[in-house]
Design a protein around this nucleic acid. Sequence first.
DNA 1: TTGTAGGCGTTATCAT
DNA 2: ATGATAACGCCTACAA
Lengths: 351, 351
Amino acid sequence: MSEGAVTPAPASDRADEIRARIRARGGAATIYDIAELAGVNPSTVSRALGKPGRISVATAERVQAAASELDFRINPAARALQTGKTGMLGLVVADITNPVVFDVVRGAEHEAADAGYTLVIAESQESGENESEVIERLLPSVDALVLATTRLAPERLLDIAGRKPVVLINEAVDEVPSVVADVETGVNEVIDHLVALGHTSLVYLAGPSTSWISRRRWEAIFAAAERADVAIVEAGPNVPTIDGGRDAARRVLALRATAVIAYNDLMAIGLMQALAAEGIAVPSQLSITGFDDIFGSDLIVPALTTVRTDLEAAGRRAVAMTLQDQSQPQTPVAPLLTGLIVRGSTGPAPR
Amino acid sequence: MSEGAVTPAPASDRADEIRARIRARGGAATIYDIAELAGVNPSTVSRALGKPGRISVATAERVQAAASELDFRINPAARALQTGKTGMLGLVVADITNPVVFDVVRGAEHEAADAGYTLVIAESQESGENESEVIERLLPSVDALVLATTRLAPERLLDIAGRKPVVLINEAVDEVPSVVADVETGVNEVIDHLVALGHTSLVYLAGPSTSWISRRRWEAIFAAAERADVAIVEAGPNVPTIDGGRDAARRVLALRATAVIAYNDLMAIGLMQALAAEGIAVPSQLSITGFDDIFGSDLIVPALTTVRTDLEAAGRRAVAMTLQDQSQPQTPVAPLLTGLIVRGSTGPAPR
DNA sequence: TTGTAGGCGTTATCAT
DNA sequence: ATGATAACGCCTACAA
């Protein structure tokens, strides 16, 4: 038991000793611990772990062994301090519980994870001031920023973009890279769809006046309607929520149109609810369409005809752009496609 | 213009000079820059910014002025390296696009922001292995962790909890703090509601077998049904999604019950869709209820009767617990209330 | 109250 | 291929 016992192998002996020391100081293993266990210099450990090629296979293996022996995890703060890279990406959205951003968040998270980055999500609560603060708080700890639904003024945006790479989603500001869906395709499809159903008088239920994408949709709708030779009018601005759609019902009805293209599905849903309450039948008396194809659009009755955008792809792409070497020429990518999904909320125009 | 021009005030002159130097080295202002501009030692700057009381008012003000003059933001990495505190909190969820987690995320984000922390969100994609990896990656960069829908084994959980503070949501493991909704109240209300409608044969459409909260709900339902003297049977396990609910329809119908309590709203919705496809009327032929009251539950027709949990409060509370001094005695808090929301999917039992 | 002097864990730049 | 050493920006004894 005592004298006669064989001494444990020196290697694991040493490991135990080091482990004890680590525990004693109440921290995690560092490259110094590994260096000691592997019998090399800390800088060699750093290289072995960081740059595969630049070290002899033998030492690399010894280091790897020691590292896993001691359950080593690199200290991100120490690395960040030295390199300036935090390995984190920021995503700022106006409202986390807005179904529209779900898919953006998912796409962004996946792309970030795939690239070995961690995603930090912050909510601006639809307020520009808040958004500014949030961004200031986030900026020092992220390598880049994706703004999904910014309410910031262009100057402010440019200022931020000057400090860290910034990518916008569905928003365009000169000089700031952005991921924007190809509005035209989907819009043309809606208009064609409605015209084919015999509608000759349309309403665009606009979003917030500060929303770049709402204007963009309006322009595309206007052009398509003009081309199709049907009446078109913009009603708004409106709050882009279910309540916003509900509140607009009376104004919409007063326009005596036969079809409404809402800025987004949330508003379309609100509008449909208000219409139902007023006893207006959809689609027999009024056809309704939305944008986004959010969760819930196919749950409502009648199910909503809508222009779908691949928001998950938007999130992925925004993150990918963010990681692109800024000095490299941007590889031009195909625009995000949009397409019409025809469901029950559109039908023949009443006569 | 040249000779006659008044020299700018020395102070701002100095500031410009320092600003130029900062720009030249392509970084942000440091406490050294501030120290220089304010004419004090860097350590004094650190104190002035960090601990209000321990510095003379005059110097504190000079430092503050210099800091905002140079637009100083503290370098989180440098601070973290020294203090071991990163100022970040991790939230791990199984599926970001699951409506159930939205409110948790929002609550957590708000509480974190209020406490001056930044929330990092990671997705485990419903896989325990994945979750483990994600957590390992996250752990070194966060001060604490909230696991919203963990699939991890208790031992693993305990291991993680030993390294950083961990709080669980709707999941209980010995020794690991958690936020759990008070299932009983809501469950008793559903059962009472169904019994009052004349139902005598109920089905619980269970969630995943690994879900602690699904078992918890089942136990409460069983007890309440027993007390009310109505038949109750568990059907499952099932995948807790719309598709999972859809797939269970045939099995549910075969049970010839008159009311189904689904593990969550997603499954209830899927079930309702499948029933509609089969021509089964809800609630006249079959009453359906869910849990969670997610977005969409009041959109579907008939709108879903469901047991609502304040998930946002759960998120807030979990984060708050996370930040609590671990050495302090935990202040016991009132359990999260749940309550029944009666909508159209439940009605009198068919006779 | 303020200055001095390390040190946190890593990477980068020299040497060797 | 590897070792020594100096930063990175902040915090914190300790001294003054």
